[in-house]
Design a protein around this nucleic acid. Structure first.
Lengths: 150, 150
DNA sequence: ATCTTTTTGACCTTCACTGACCTTATTATA
DNA sequence: TATAATAAGGTCAGTGAAGGTCAAAAAGAT
């Protein structure tokens, strides 16, 4: 078994132990536990705890820093996960709006959330960034917000 | 929990206890209470009780000196225009969160909008962009959304 | 043999905290 | 009334404690 799999299942278990579904760890502690370099933890999180899998990750640097991993519980997860997978890691404004519309139709998000996201994801708001990064950014914003409000 | 967080919540509570909303303390007393160096108090005030958060801080040196922390109550309409004036074209995550918190406090935006914006403007969500552009982007997002939803 | 995934390490940024040194106001005293 | 002592608070650079990034090396898969 790979290190990445070991760490993955360890984190999974720990998250499930928390009754609020939120695990807070120190990256260096985890790294120490598995005697690996700290950046290995980033790899695990990036590949195994992405919004596509129903997780939301939040971190903080500096003294007292942490990595916080939240398992999302919602009956709408299968719909959004599917959507995220199909979407890939880039998204145009147009496609984004279509996704928003279908989330609205399914009553997965409400009108005011959709409105905010429309503004946030507009080309206009996301100006000053090259197209490539902009599309990635849009997908990223979309996934992270949606996973949190479903 | 960090010392900053402890001191922050202590001050918050004390301010709320005062019926005029004004707390007057001696920096050295506070430092003693938390067994830290006095300049730590300055750090807390600079990072947690800045004008962006809706506080006004006044100090006096010399014998009988003090630090006076006041919660500013201003008109709803003034809040946003003040914010826009002070903001400039760049914004850190920290400052962004402070603005959001104060918009929430004044009921200018609701909880769910604040939550969405917190996620959108987080360093994590806005990953893959260099610091300079990220800060500009954040300011841009903030302005665009706020103008459109209030 | 080539392509993909995992693992590592060097270097970077952010945040919290401290201490030495500076400025200002009050009070005691020559 | 000057002046010295004392009692505040202010500044800023430096240290340490986190986490982030990215590219290269290693290991697996096809």
């Amino acid at each position: 078994m790979n290190l990445v799999d070991l760490i993955e299942s360890y984190i999974m278990e720990e998250v499930d132990k928390q009754e609020n579904g939120i695990l807070e760890v120190k990256r260096c502690d985890l790294a120490e536990t598995f005697s690996c370099v700290p950046s290995q933890i980033n790899y695990v999180i990036a590949t195994r705890f992405a919004p596509e899998m129903g997780f939301y990750v939040e971190t903080r640097r500096g003294g007292g820093g942490y990595i916080r991993i939240k398992r999302v519980v919602s009956d709408k997860l299968d719909i959004t996960s599917d959507m995220f997978d199909k979407m890939g890691d880039k998204m145009s404004q147009h496609v984004g709006n279509m996704y928003l519309k279908s989330l609205l139709d399914y009553n997965i998000i409400d009108e005011s959330s959709a409105e905010i996201l429309t503004i946030v994801m507009s080309d206009n708001t996301l100006s000053g960034i090259n197209v490539e990064s902009k599309e990635k950014l849009r997908a990223n914003i979309f996934k992270n917000v949606i996973i949190n409000i479903i």
